[in-house]
């Protein structure tokens, strides 16, 4: 199924980008080559402002910003062009034009006619906006994947070291024994004294406490232990999927990120979501485990079938 999700994300993305670019080109959304009229009181090579009314902008681009007040932007003049400095009030279309031309903060426009108090300007040709954004995304997200992975090396090594201490001293086993009744029910295929149980408990505990930096390394350690018990290389075992769903459910007593952002934005009661998100994530986790247990018996997902197909592919 991951295959289909992957194809869908890529194909829908590319098609949506291309069709939106074709639509923009056919309606000339960015008014390439058309003269835009701005007013100025004083403008020089060092300082000045240009202005226009929202009404004029709406009419020119056939959009609806609402309101009829005047927008003023700082601007400087050179021999044949004007450089407009963009700010928080910048209309979306201008931001896009500026971004496509190379800078988010300023917009260079060529002056076609200069009369007393008025400039008629033409903005840089803007086309294939979405397609370019998709190309940028490919490059930046590939790098992001590597950045994330490399950043993981240190914490990963640290927690693997701590876990090894726990294994060698027998602490992980003790923890596993305490949780045995619950874990044996959720993971019936895993022997109760296997290190995988200890690692999974550590991961779930880290998640519950909102310790994201520790949870991922501990979770990956648990996956490695589960893989040791997995007879079908390359194919997920029942226990792996169940464990994964527990992780994607995101059950936590302390939703640290959400609370931190709420506090930063000046909430009167940042922790009000403790209970509600525990409820939501709790339901999600229960539903996920139940779904995993039911789906693993359905024909297309049965381990024998998938593993056999994988084997046939490898030959």
């Amino acid at each position: 199924m991951l295959n289909y999700v992957w194809i869908a994300l890529v194909a829908i993305g590319v098609i949506a980008a291309a069709s939106s670019d074709i639509y923009d080109a056919s309606t000339n959304r960015y008014r390439n080559g058309e003269w835009f009229e701005v007013r100025y009181d004083s403008i020089s090579a060092e300082a000045g402002t240009v202005s226009f009314t929202k009404e004029y902008f709406d009419h020119f681009y056939d959009v609806n910003m609402g309101g009829s007040d005047t927008l003023v932007f700082p601007a400087t003049l050179s021999s044949d062009s004007v450089r407009i400095t963009l700010g928080a009030e910048t209309p979306e279309i201008w931001t896009t034009i500026a971004k496509t031309a190379g800078s988010e903060k300023r917009l260079d426009a060529v002056i076609r006619r200069h009369t007393d108090g008025y400039l008629f300007v033409v903005f840089p040709i803007t086309s294939l906006v979405r397609t370019k954004a998709v190309l940028d995304a490919v490059i930046s997200y590939s790098s992001l994947a590597v950045t994330i992975s490399l950043a993981l090396i240190g914490v990963m090594a640290f927690w693997l070291g701590i876990m090894k201490l726990g294994e060698d001293s027998g602490l992980i086993n003790i923890i596993a024994r305490v949780m045995k009744p619950v874990m044996a029910r959720i993971f019936p295929e895993i022997p109760p004294d296997h290190p995988a149980i200890g690692a999974m408990i550590m991961n779930i505990a880290a998640n519950m406490l909102g310790l994201n930096n520790a949870a991922t390394p501990l979770g990956l350690k648990a996956m490695e232990e589960l893989e040791k018990l997995n007879p079908n290389k390359g194919t997920a075992s029942n226990a792996m999927v169940t464990f994964l769903v527990i992780n994607t459910g995101g059950l936590t007593i302390i939703p640290a990120t959400a609370i931190a952002i709420r506090a930063a934005l000046g909430s009167k009661d940042p922790t009000v979501i403790l209970m509600t998100s525990f409820f939501g994530a709790g339901l999600a986790t229960i539903a996920g485990i139940a779904a995993a247990k039911i789906l693993q018996r359905l024909k297309p997902y049965r381990i024998e079938k998938v593993a056999k197909a994988a084997e046939a592919e490898n030959k």
Partner: peptide
């Protein structure tokens, strides 16, 4: 998680994960 153990046949993981998301 699956990458760490070289698993590419994810079976019902996506379906179960998405069910959990919707319920959440």
């Amino acid at each position: 998680y699956f990458g760490a153990v070289n698993i590419y046949k994810t079976r019902h993981a996506v379906a179960a994960g998405l069910i959990a998301d919707v319920v959440g």
